[in-house]
Write a protein that binds this DNA or RNA. Sequence first.
DNA 1: CCTCCTAACGAACGATCGTTCGCTTTCTTT
DNA 2: AAAGAAAGCGAACGATCGTTCGTTAGGAGG
Lengths: 205, 205
Amino acid sequence: MSSTPRKEQIIETAARLFSQRGYHATSMRDLARELDLKGASLYSHISGKEEILWLILERAARQFLDAIEPIAASDMPPLEKLRAAIRSHVRVVTGDLAAATVYFHEWKALQGERRAQFLEWRRRYEHLLQGIVEEGMAAGVLDPHADPKFATLLILSVVNWLYQWYRPEGPLSPDEIAERFTALILDGLGARVGEETADAAYQTA
Amino acid sequence: MSSTPRKEQIIETAARLFSQRGYHATSMRDLARELDLKGASLYSHISGKEEILWLILERAARQFLDAIEPIAASDMPPLEKLRAAIRSHVRVVTGDLAAATVYFHEWKALQGERRAQFLEWRRRYEHLLQGIVEEGMAAGVLDPHADPKFATLLILSVVNWLYQWYRPEGPLSPDEIAERFTALILDGLGARVGEETADAAYQTA
DNA sequence: CCTCCTAACGAACGATCGTTCGCTTTCTTT
DNA sequence: AAAGAAAGCGAACGATCGTTCGTTAGGAGG
């Protein structure tokens, strides 16, 4: 019988509540009630409310970094790196949607050292992604005229917004979503010259 | 001497504080202090905390809708519609960054009827944008093989994420940002076949 | 000058917040 | 069964929350 340790239950439940109502709108008593406990009992397992938030954010940040670091350091072709980075990002978000929502929404509730540490991880992640984009441009597989900062921002927009609309019961699997993301980011939405419908496109233009 | 009415000052200041700290982390006394008032004095002008949030969100939602409705209803070519919609969205976000931040971040604090009304506006906005995308596909200027829902989601991701990184003192004007958004959404980041030669020819001109 | 009206105020209300304390219950180990 | 540790609890703490109340200050219009 593998019973999840209480501390893990607390973190998981807190991630769910924080993602639904927000950190400040969730009280310790709310959290306790969800676990059939009284508020005071939580303090047998954690030191305070902010520690719970920190544990959620720390794990999420590590998941993002642990996923992209080996990709960025590998010797894959640049386009494969980008594809793998997008796929891993989507997997982290969809793998724990509640934690990802807290990651994007509630980090501002952190204070002092923890907040600085979080932002440093976030910055590092974005920097690694931008490095992959720049490799792609240098290799000529990404548009060399694009601004790498802006291009990275576009990719981050698409993959970061995912937590806002993804639902596990939706029609697309995480990897399918990642595949479509990559295709749209690379090729865009515009009708392509030379496609089957190119004739029609030209005629209406 | 045009002195801004107190109520407007309250709403503006609240938008700034809510966008920085969040709705629940901003107390009425915090808000009052920012206006050199005491907490009780706010209630001469507003009925309660949630009304302030509502006024911010209502205005923001109306700005988004007022901007896209005439565009969607116009007889512009589909591509121009999309370009105009993206530009107007970017203008709304950049025109009042604090309000836009509250719009995207703090609407969950609304309850009951107001929450439902807000979501209805949001849904209508996204529906209008999707209509523009579908027109573009029908006219053949947007990839007819793309899923219109997914394509709209991609556009929304890019323009909605803007509030996360836009700073008025940044190098790009709102219209420049919109122009780059449109270009990247249409053409993507991938290097185009035959680009180098065509580009070399153009660069000499 | 006097009267209104509005804006601002000090004080207080009940509620709830995160957290602590000492005690009891439950589980583990021998 | 005894002993020790871990987990949970009731009660309470000081702080702060949104809000209300009765009153005061100050300017506008007569």
